[in-house]
Write a protein that binds this DNA or RNA. Structure first.
Lengths: 318, 318
DNA sequence: AGCAACAGGTAAATCGTTCTAGTGGCATGG
DNA sequence: CCATGCCACTAGAACGATTTACCTGTTGCT
């Protein structure tokens, strides 16, 4: 541990710009210019080399806090992600975001949970992030995707439509949407999208029902709903969690899937492969979306970044 | 928007200590002393009031970056969490950590994914966090829990033992451990704990097998293993994910659960309630553990914080 | 009176960067 | 010969807090 080579010494004093300046016999300013490749300055090649060598030898690494104080903003991007938005989409989104930011020397930090305005403000004051991304918003609106011509094509709306279309293509007309118990904002939006998609497919807007988490309650809720809606032959889950509960409930009610009732999930969470029958679902690769968010947050060119379309993973439930 | 009342003005200049000082007719230093309740300073009650009033009226909020530069460390704690450690435990751990840190005016930021040393170093340089917690380590060793007399009693070791004990209490002697495909560090440790626990219960160390993610491969692997180990009557999953796959595989192999084979999961992920039979599993409430980590990270007293013991959620699979 | 102790402050250094405003020297042009 | 411009670089002022060292009265005590 703590070998002497390059980099971080254990407890010893920081190597600062001053040290590098002293070691290479120039001023602090010059060092800064060299290391930041300031285009407005002309520095001789010789000096440039000396400075770079010295910096490397001393293991200089800029102090982000000082830099942030001076520049007014740190090289950090914060992602706020509310509880309940986890899932495959979020994971791959974070992955892409992280990778792209890292490529530009930025660090991604994620804030989980329910955020009071006060706490949010504190984050701003404490680390002065370059940008704060609100996962919920981004995901819901797909506005970022709009900016590169995606929008309805690649956003949540498109994915909702894809789910519905798959059911229609398999001959279903009576379709119901299964919603989780508590997720008002997202649920409302997605329901809206689904309704729009239905209109586009020549159907009437699908009805919906809430799936409680408890197993017997779940079966009861489903039965009650189905009694009142005998035309329903397919259920579209708000997400895979809900769809899996529906699958279980149908089994508990002795209805066969997909013969008696088709079920489709949303945002493959990985567990759908292990049920009987396995769950057909919509899978979205959000890695590119994450990268896109990163570039937008940094104000960079989004050059040709086109998220791949979502696709239906056909397993056995429809 | 942007009303004049309390708090954060939209785009206007920051309110600094200087502003407060000017407004209350004292020096910057005095303001700092007052607002930080510096015990080594004596400030008259009158001045104290004036300063506090002015600070409130102007909506002063200390600039964390400047403070971090001066103090050498910011009021941020970073949690590194490697991919593959998600689950109920991690979620509730994060929740507790977040809450406790917030109570002490600290902010929790989470770093996801695979962390190169370089990137990790950058985090340190960029935000100079008060502490960096490595989720994997904390979780594995349970050292923190040791410090309050928990240790083997409340750590991963204890939980592994609990899982095994439940099987033994239900009459099982031939026990096998099901492992995920790729998670070497954690898997090895947990296997070690399980072996120790087995010894403690008078059993020989359980054998283990790997559960591939793909469904048919999964069934094949299980069958192969069981042929070579006919004494096995119960399977302990490394986590719920694995246990659920085992459940599916058993069904695919036409073995009844729990009559022909018992299965128990680990770290209730919520999906176990919806299988047939539903999955019995070990549930750990890590909220308190998170709080504990927070206090330790801040160097505070851990006063009487005792994580509740893990418990077995008995459903139907054993 | 003489002197310490203390209350109630203030000025200025400090953290490590970035960046503006110069500075001295040399070449070019009229 | 002098103005101009460029090259290569430097001094020092920010950024916004904390904190040390010091200052100026007042008391209290002998």
């Amino acid at each position: 541990m703590n070998g002497g080579g390059a980099g971080v010494m254990g407890g010893s004093r920081r190597v600062t710009l001053n040290d590098v300046a002293a070691a290479s016999g120039v001023s602090r300013a010059t060092v800064s210019f060299v290391l930041n490749d300031d285009p407005h300055q002309t520095i001789s090649a010789a000096t440039r080399d000396r400075v770079k060598q010295a910096a490397k030898k001393l293991g200089y690494v800029p102090h982000g806090v000082a830099r942030a104080l001076r520049e007014g903003t740190s090289r950090v991007v914060v992602l706020n992600i509310e509880a309940g938005f986890e899932g495959h989409y979020a994971r791959s989104y974070i992955e892409g975001l992280d990778a792209e930011l890292a490529a530009h020397e930025y660090v991604l930090l994620v804030r989980h949970g329910h955020h009071t305005p006060r706490a949010t403000q504190q984050v701003l004051d404490v680390i002065a992030p370059r940008a704060v991304i609100r996962f919920g918003e981004t995901y819901l609106t797909g506005r970022e995707l709009d900016d590169v011509g995606g929008g309805w094509r690649d956003g949540l709306a498109a994915h909702s439509a894809l789910q519905l279309r798959h059911l229609v293509e398999h001959g279903h007309i009576g379709i119901a949407v299964a919603l989780p118990e508590a997720e008002p904002p997202l649920a409302a939006t997605r329901l809206k999208f689904t309704a729009q998609a239905a209109r586009g497919l020549g159907l009437r807007p699908p009805g919906s029902f809430v799936v409680p988490p408890e197993r017997t309650a779940c079966a009861r809720a489903l039965q009650t709903y189905l009694v009142g809606a005998p035309e329903v032959t397919a259920i579209a889950g708000f997400n895979d969690d809900v769809a899996l509960r529906v699958l279980t409930a149908l089994r508990d009610l002795d209805r066969r899937v997909p013969e008696d009732m088709a079920v489709i999930g949303f945002d493959d969470n990985g567990y759908g492969a292990y049920t009987t029958p396995p769950l057909t679902t919509v899978k979205v690769d959000a890695e590119a979306h994450g990268r896109l968010s990163a570039r937008l947050a940094l104000g960079l060119d989004t050059g040709g970044l086109r998220p791949p379309p979502a696709r239906v993973v056909v397993r056995g439930s429809v």
